[in-house]
Nucleic acid binder design. Sequence first.
DNA 1: GATACGTGGTC
DNA 2: TGACCAAGTAT
Length: 375
Amino acid sequence: MPLDIPPGFPLDPPPGQPEPEPRAFAADLLAWYDRHARVLPWRVAPADRAAGVRPDPYRVWLSEIMLQQTTVAAVKSYFEAFTLRWPRLVDLAAATRDEVMSAWAGLGYYSRARNLKACAETVAQAHGGVFPASEAGLRALPGIGPYTAAAIAAIAFDEVATVVDGNVERVVSRLYRILTPLPLAKAEIRVLAERLTPAARPGDYAQAMMDLGATICTPKRPACSLCPVNTVCAAAAVGDPDGFPVKAPKAVRPIRHGHAFVAVREDGAVLLRRRADKGLLGGMAEVPGTDWTTERPAAPPPFAAAWRRLAVPVEHTFTHFHLVLHVWHAAVGGAAPAPDGHWWSEPDKLGSEALPSLMRKVVEAAVPGAGRRRP
DNA sequence: GATACGTGGTC
DNA sequence: TGACCAAGTAT
Protein backbone atom coordinates (compact mmCIF):
# COMPACT_ATOMS: atom_id res chain seq x y z
CA MET A 1 0.00 0.00 0.00
CA PRO A 2 1.62 3.23 -1.12
CA LEU A 3 1.85 5.95 1.46
CA ASP A 4 -0.18 9.05 0.80
CA ILE A 5 2.62 11.43 1.74
CA PRO A 6 3.50 14.70 0.02
CA PRO A 7 6.58 14.34 -2.22
CA GLY A 8 9.83 15.47 -0.71
CA PHE A 9 9.24 14.06 2.76
CA PRO A 10 12.19 11.83 3.69
CA LEU A 11 10.30 8.98 5.29
CA ASP A 12 11.38 5.41 5.72
CA PRO A 13 8.38 3.21 6.43
CA PRO A 14 9.13 -0.51 6.23
CA PRO A 15 7.65 -2.43 3.26
CA GLY A 16 3.96 -3.15 3.75
CA GLN A 17 3.64 -0.75 6.69
CA PRO A 18 0.11 0.70 6.71
CA GLU A 19 -0.06 4.47 7.02
CA PRO A 20 -2.12 5.71 9.96
CA GLU A 21 -5.66 6.24 8.65
CA PRO A 22 -6.88 9.47 10.29
CA ARG A 23 -10.37 8.37 11.39
CA ALA A 24 -9.26 5.05 12.83
CA PHE A 25 -6.20 6.64 14.41
CA ALA A 26 -8.23 9.28 16.26
CA ALA A 27 -10.84 6.72 17.33
CA ASP A 28 -8.21 4.37 18.75
CA LEU A 29 -6.36 7.17 20.49
CA LEU A 30 -9.52 8.66 22.04
CA ALA A 31 -10.70 5.24 23.23
CA TRP A 32 -7.36 4.84 24.98
CA TYR A 33 -7.62 8.33 26.45
CA ASP A 34 -11.10 7.64 27.82
CA ARG A 35 -9.60 4.83 29.88
CA HIS A 36 -6.17 6.22 30.73
CA ALA A 37 -6.38 10.02 30.87
CA ARG A 38 -4.25 11.33 33.71
CA VAL A 39 -6.05 13.24 36.45
CA LEU A 40 -4.56 16.75 36.56
CA PRO A 41 -5.66 19.84 38.51
CA TRP A 42 -6.36 21.87 35.36
CA ARG A 43 -8.02 19.10 33.40
CA VAL A 44 -11.66 18.10 32.96
CA ALA A 45 -11.89 14.30 32.82
CA PRO A 46 -13.15 12.96 29.45
CA ALA A 47 -16.35 11.59 31.05
CA ASP A 48 -17.16 14.97 32.60
CA ARG A 49 -16.28 16.67 29.35
CA ALA A 50 -18.74 14.39 27.55
CA ALA A 51 -21.37 15.38 30.12
CA GLY A 52 -20.95 19.01 29.15
CA VAL A 53 -18.47 20.27 31.74
CA ARG A 54 -16.29 22.99 30.21
CA PRO A 55 -12.81 23.78 31.48
CA ASP A 56 -12.18 27.31 32.74
CA PRO A 57 -10.15 29.10 30.01
CA TYR A 58 -8.19 30.95 32.72
CA ARG A 59 -7.01 27.69 34.27
CA VAL A 60 -6.28 26.16 30.87
CA TRP A 61 -4.23 29.20 29.90
CA LEU A 62 -2.35 29.33 33.21
CA SER A 63 -1.52 25.62 33.07
CA GLU A 64 -0.35 25.80 29.46
CA ILE A 65 1.99 28.69 30.17
CA MET A 66 3.43 26.88 33.19
CA LEU A 67 3.82 23.65 31.21
CA GLN A 68 5.98 25.25 28.51
CA GLN A 69 9.26 23.29 28.66
CA THR A 70 8.35 22.28 32.20
CA THR A 71 7.29 18.95 33.67
CA VAL A 72 3.86 18.24 35.12
CA ALA A 73 5.49 17.36 38.44
CA ALA A 74 7.18 20.75 38.68
CA VAL A 75 4.04 22.65 37.66
CA LYS A 76 1.47 21.12 40.04
CA SER A 77 2.34 22.99 43.25
CA TYR A 78 2.77 26.30 41.40
CA PHE A 79 -0.59 25.89 39.68
CA GLU A 80 -2.30 25.21 43.01
CA ALA A 81 -0.60 28.21 44.62
CA PHE A 82 -1.48 30.56 41.76
CA THR A 83 -5.13 29.52 41.50
CA LEU A 84 -5.54 29.65 45.28
CA ARG A 85 -4.07 33.15 45.44
CA TRP A 86 -5.55 34.44 42.16
CA PRO A 87 -8.73 32.40 41.45
CA ARG A 88 -9.77 34.49 38.43
CA LEU A 89 -8.02 36.25 35.61
CA VAL A 90 -8.97 39.67 37.01
CA ASP A 91 -7.32 38.76 40.31
CA LEU A 92 -4.05 38.01 38.56
CA ALA A 93 -4.36 41.15 36.44
CA ALA A 94 -4.69 43.18 39.65
CA ALA A 95 -1.59 41.65 41.27
CA THR A 96 1.71 43.52 41.32
CA ARG A 97 4.63 42.50 39.14
CA ASP A 98 6.71 41.59 42.19
CA GLU A 99 3.96 39.38 43.59
CA VAL A 100 3.81 37.44 40.34
CA MET A 101 7.59 37.18 39.95
CA SER A 102 7.97 36.00 43.56
CA ALA A 103 5.25 33.39 43.11
CA TRP A 104 6.93 32.19 39.90
CA ALA A 105 10.42 32.04 41.46
CA GLY A 106 11.96 28.60 40.97
CA LEU A 107 9.85 27.62 37.98
CA GLY A 108 12.28 29.05 35.41
CA TYR A 109 11.94 30.85 32.07
CA TYR A 110 10.94 34.06 33.80
CA SER A 111 9.82 35.81 30.63
CA ARG A 112 6.78 33.54 31.02
CA ALA A 113 5.91 35.27 34.30
CA ARG A 114 6.38 38.72 32.79
CA ASN A 115 4.22 37.79 29.80
CA LEU A 116 1.68 36.10 32.08
CA LYS A 117 1.09 39.38 33.86
CA ALA A 118 1.03 41.35 30.60
CA CYS A 119 -1.43 38.89 29.08
CA ALA A 120 -3.73 39.02 32.11
CA GLU A 121 -3.78 42.81 31.95
CA THR A 122 -4.47 42.81 28.22
CA VAL A 123 -7.35 40.35 28.49
CA ALA A 124 -8.77 42.18 31.51
CA GLN A 125 -8.61 45.60 29.91
CA ALA A 126 -8.93 45.08 26.14
CA HIS A 127 -11.13 41.97 26.13
CA GLY A 128 -13.40 42.61 29.09
CA GLY A 129 -11.77 39.85 31.10
CA VAL A 130 -12.73 37.18 28.58
CA PHE A 131 -10.15 35.23 26.59
CA PRO A 132 -10.44 35.29 22.79
CA ALA A 133 -12.03 31.99 21.76
CA SER A 134 -10.09 31.51 18.52
CA GLU A 135 -6.59 30.27 17.86
CA ALA A 136 -5.79 33.46 15.92
CA GLY A 137 -7.08 35.71 18.67
CA LEU A 138 -5.12 33.88 21.33
CA ARG A 139 -1.97 33.90 19.23
CA ALA A 140 -1.88 37.71 19.41
CA LEU A 141 -1.51 37.72 23.21
CA PRO A 142 1.89 37.97 24.94
CA GLY A 143 3.45 34.62 25.82
CA ILE A 144 1.06 32.68 23.59
CA GLY A 145 2.77 31.10 20.60
CA PRO A 146 1.61 28.53 18.04
CA TYR A 147 1.49 25.64 20.48
CA THR A 148 -0.29 27.41 23.34
CA ALA A 149 -2.81 29.11 21.06
CA ALA A 150 -3.78 25.77 19.55
CA ALA A 151 -3.91 24.07 22.94
CA ILE A 152 -6.19 26.67 24.54
CA ALA A 153 -8.40 26.89 21.44
CA ALA A 154 -8.85 23.12 21.33
CA ILE A 155 -9.11 22.40 25.06
CA ALA A 156 -11.09 25.40 26.27
CA PHE A 157 -13.06 26.35 23.13
CA ASP A 158 -13.50 23.16 21.08
CA GLU A 159 -11.76 24.63 18.05
CA VAL A 160 -10.32 22.06 15.64
CA ALA A 161 -6.73 23.19 16.10
CA THR A 162 -3.67 21.00 15.70
CA VAL A 163 -1.45 21.00 18.75
CA VAL A 164 2.22 20.33 18.04
CA ASP A 165 4.46 20.13 21.06
CA GLY A 166 7.49 17.98 21.83
CA ASN A 167 5.27 14.98 22.55
CA VAL A 168 3.41 15.27 19.25
CA GLU A 169 6.68 15.70 17.38
CA ARG A 170 8.00 12.50 18.90
CA VAL A 171 4.81 10.51 18.27
CA VAL A 172 4.46 11.66 14.66
CA SER A 173 8.14 11.21 13.85
CA ARG A 174 7.87 7.60 15.04
CA LEU A 175 4.56 6.88 13.32
CA TYR A 176 6.10 7.83 9.96
CA ARG A 177 9.80 7.21 10.66
CA ILE A 178 10.68 10.75 9.61
CA LEU A 179 14.34 10.84 8.61
CA THR A 180 14.67 14.63 8.55
CA PRO A 181 16.36 15.76 11.77
CA LEU A 182 14.71 18.22 14.13
CA PRO A 183 14.29 21.16 14.09
CA LEU A 184 14.15 21.04 10.28
CA ALA A 185 11.46 18.35 10.43
CA LYS A 186 8.97 20.59 12.20
CA ALA A 187 7.23 21.65 8.98
CA GLU A 188 6.76 18.05 7.81
CA ILE A 189 5.57 16.98 11.24
CA ARG A 190 2.96 19.72 11.28
CA VAL A 191 1.54 18.66 7.90
CA LEU A 192 1.23 15.07 9.04
CA ALA A 193 -0.15 16.03 12.47
CA GLU A 194 -2.81 18.20 10.84
CA ARG A 195 -3.83 15.32 8.62
CA LEU A 196 -4.41 13.15 11.70
CA THR A 197 -6.42 15.73 13.65
CA PRO A 198 -10.12 14.79 13.87
CA ALA A 199 -13.10 17.17 13.73
CA ALA A 200 -14.67 15.74 16.88
CA ARG A 201 -13.41 16.19 20.45
CA PRO A 202 -10.44 18.38 19.51
CA GLY A 203 -9.51 19.13 23.12
CA ASP A 204 -9.51 15.54 24.24
CA TYR A 205 -7.61 14.53 21.12
CA ALA A 206 -4.90 17.13 21.77
CA GLN A 207 -4.51 16.00 25.37
CA ALA A 208 -4.57 12.36 24.28
CA MET A 209 -1.64 12.90 21.91
CA MET A 210 0.34 14.64 24.64
CA ASP A 211 -0.57 12.01 27.25
CA LEU A 212 0.49 9.29 24.82
CA GLY A 213 3.85 10.97 24.38
CA ALA A 214 4.28 11.58 28.10
CA THR A 215 3.34 8.11 29.33
CA ILE A 216 3.71 5.56 26.49
CA CYS A 217 5.65 7.04 23.58
CA THR A 218 8.41 8.30 25.88
CA PRO A 219 11.81 9.56 24.68
CA LYS A 220 13.63 6.47 25.94
CA ARG A 221 12.39 2.89 26.06
CA PRO A 222 8.79 3.63 25.02
CA ALA A 223 6.14 1.13 26.09
CA CYS A 224 5.13 0.11 22.58
CA SER A 225 3.33 -3.02 23.79
CA LEU A 226 0.85 -0.77 25.61
CA CYS A 227 0.42 1.70 22.76
CA PRO A 228 -3.08 1.97 21.27
CA VAL A 229 -1.71 2.84 17.81
CA ASN A 230 1.33 0.57 17.59
CA THR A 231 -0.08 -1.32 14.59
CA VAL A 232 0.33 1.77 12.41
CA CYS A 233 3.69 2.89 13.80
CA ALA A 234 6.58 2.57 11.35
CA ALA A 235 9.28 2.95 13.99
CA ALA A 236 7.72 0.28 16.20
CA ALA A 237 7.38 -2.01 13.20
CA VAL A 238 11.15 -2.13 12.78
CA GLY A 239 11.85 -2.19 16.51
CA ASP A 240 13.58 1.17 16.61
CA PRO A 241 11.30 3.69 18.34
CA ASP A 242 14.26 5.14 20.27
CA GLY A 243 15.85 6.21 17.00
CA PHE A 244 13.19 8.85 16.45
CA PRO A 245 12.90 11.76 16.28
CA VAL A 246 16.26 12.22 14.55
CA LYS A 247 17.91 15.27 16.05
CA ALA A 248 20.59 17.67 14.89
CA PRO A 249 23.74 17.64 17.04
CA LYS A 250 23.75 20.09 19.90
CA ALA A 251 26.02 23.08 20.29
CA VAL A 252 28.68 22.82 22.96
CA ARG A 253 27.92 24.63 26.21
CA PRO A 254 30.58 27.23 27.09
CA ILE A 255 31.65 27.96 30.67
CA ARG A 256 31.29 31.41 32.21
CA HIS A 257 32.68 32.72 35.48
CA GLY A 258 31.50 35.41 37.87
CA HIS A 259 31.58 36.62 41.45
CA ALA A 260 28.61 37.01 43.82
CA PHE A 261 28.69 38.95 47.07
CA VAL A 262 26.50 37.93 49.99
CA ALA A 263 26.44 40.71 52.55
CA VAL A 264 24.78 39.67 55.82
CA ARG A 265 23.65 42.17 58.43
CA GLU A 266 23.77 41.40 62.17
CA ASP A 267 20.04 40.58 62.17
CA GLY A 268 20.57 38.11 59.31
CA ALA A 269 19.25 40.36 56.54
CA VAL A 270 20.86 39.83 53.12
CA LEU A 271 21.56 42.60 50.59
CA LEU A 272 19.66 42.17 47.32
CA ARG A 273 19.05 44.06 44.10
CA ARG A 274 16.78 43.68 41.07
CA ARG A 275 18.04 42.39 37.74
CA ALA A 276 17.23 44.23 34.52
CA ASP A 277 13.72 43.67 33.17
CA LYS A 278 14.78 41.70 30.11
CA GLY A 279 17.31 38.99 29.42
CA LEU A 280 18.57 36.21 31.65
CA LEU A 281 16.61 36.01 34.92
CA GLY A 282 15.02 39.31 33.90
CA GLY A 283 13.08 41.07 36.64
CA MET A 284 14.24 38.66 39.32
CA ALA A 285 16.16 39.42 42.52
CA GLU A 286 19.85 38.65 43.08
CA VAL A 287 22.76 39.36 45.38
CA PRO A 288 25.17 41.94 43.93
CA GLY A 289 27.88 40.56 41.69
CA THR A 290 29.96 40.87 38.53
CA ASP A 291 28.96 40.07 34.98
CA TRP A 292 29.32 36.44 33.98
CA THR A 293 32.02 36.15 31.35
CA THR A 294 34.12 33.56 29.57
CA GLU A 295 37.26 34.94 31.18
CA ARG A 296 37.18 34.95 34.97
CA PRO A 297 36.45 38.59 35.85
CA ALA A 298 38.17 40.69 38.48
CA ALA A 299 36.32 40.75 41.77
CA PRO A 300 35.58 44.33 42.89
CA PRO A 301 33.18 44.06 45.85
CA PRO A 302 30.16 46.38 45.86
CA PHE A 303 31.53 48.15 48.97
CA ALA A 304 34.36 47.80 51.47
CA ALA A 305 33.91 45.01 54.01
CA ALA A 306 35.74 41.98 55.35
CA TRP A 307 34.94 39.83 52.32
CA ARG A 308 35.88 36.14 52.49
CA ARG A 309 35.60 33.90 49.45
CA LEU A 310 33.95 30.51 49.97
CA ALA A 311 36.24 27.60 49.13
CA VAL A 312 33.76 25.98 46.73
CA PRO A 313 32.08 27.98 43.97
CA VAL A 314 28.40 27.55 43.16
CA GLU A 315 27.89 25.89 39.79
CA HIS A 316 24.72 26.12 37.76
CA THR A 317 23.90 24.94 34.26
CA PHE A 318 21.68 27.12 32.11
CA THR A 319 20.31 26.12 28.74
CA HIS A 320 23.17 27.64 26.78
CA PHE A 321 26.10 27.93 29.21
CA HIS A 322 27.51 26.55 32.43
CA LEU A 323 28.19 29.05 35.21
CA VAL A 324 30.90 28.89 37.88
CA LEU A 325 30.02 31.53 40.44
CA HIS A 326 32.60 32.41 43.11
CA VAL A 327 30.75 33.38 46.27
CA TRP A 328 32.00 35.98 48.73
CA HIS A 329 30.61 36.53 52.20
CA ALA A 330 30.86 39.43 54.66
CA ALA A 331 29.21 40.34 57.96
CA VAL A 332 28.37 44.04 58.08
CA GLY A 333 27.29 46.45 60.81
CA GLY A 334 23.70 46.65 61.94
CA ALA A 335 23.14 50.18 60.69
CA ALA A 336 24.69 49.70 57.24
CA PRO A 337 22.56 51.53 54.63
CA ALA A 338 21.61 49.74 51.43
CA PRO A 339 23.36 51.18 48.35
CA ASP A 340 21.19 52.75 45.64
CA GLY A 341 18.93 50.21 44.00
CA HIS A 342 19.57 47.64 46.74
CA TRP A 343 17.58 46.60 49.79
CA TRP A 344 18.08 44.52 52.89
CA SER A 345 15.91 41.42 52.95
CA GLU A 346 15.19 40.29 56.50
CA PRO A 347 15.37 36.57 57.33
CA ASP A 348 11.58 36.17 57.45
CA LYS A 349 11.21 37.87 54.05
CA LEU A 350 14.06 36.21 52.19
CA GLY A 351 12.05 33.07 51.53
CA SER A 352 9.40 34.95 49.58
CA GLU A 353 11.73 37.14 47.50
CA ALA A 354 11.76 36.67 43.72
CA LEU A 355 15.03 34.77 43.89
CA PRO A 356 15.76 32.34 41.05
CA SER A 357 17.10 28.93 42.04
CA LEU A 358 20.67 29.95 41.24
CA MET A 359 20.50 32.80 43.75
CA ARG A 360 18.94 30.58 46.40
CA LYS A 361 21.93 28.28 45.94
CA VAL A 362 24.28 31.25 46.39
CA VAL A 363 22.56 32.47 49.56
CA GLU A 364 22.45 28.94 50.92
CA ALA A 365 26.16 28.49 50.29
CA ALA A 366 27.01 31.62 52.30
CA VAL A 367 24.31 31.36 55.00
CA PRO A 368 23.04 27.78 55.33
CA GLY A 369 19.28 27.69 55.90
CA ALA A 370 18.63 31.26 54.80
CA GLY A 371 17.92 30.74 51.12
CA ARG A 372 15.09 28.25 51.23
CA ARG A 373 11.95 29.18 49.36
CA ARG A 374 8.92 29.84 51.53
CA PRO A 375 5.98 30.97 49.39
C1' DG B 1 16.50 29.87 10.96
C1' DA B 2 19.40 30.40 14.92
C1' DT B 3 19.82 31.84 19.45
C1' DA B 4 18.42 33.19 24.22
C1' DC B 5 15.96 31.71 27.84
C1' DG B 6 15.74 27.86 33.88
C1' DT B 7 15.14 24.19 36.43
C1' DG B 8 14.96 19.65 38.40
C1' DG B 9 14.58 14.87 37.32
C1' DT B 10 16.31 10.70 34.96
C1' DC B 11 19.38 7.04 33.46
C1' DT C 1 27.84 11.69 36.38
C1' DG C 2 27.09 14.23 32.71
C1' DA C 3 24.06 14.47 28.99
C1' DC C 4 19.52 14.55 27.91
C1' DC C 5 15.03 15.92 28.59
C1' DA C 6 9.91 18.63 29.65
C1' DA C 7 2.73 20.56 27.23
C1' DG C 8 7.75 26.74 23.66
C1' DT C 9 8.13 31.79 22.85
C1' DA C 10 10.39 35.95 21.44
C1' DT C 11 13.53 38.11 18.58
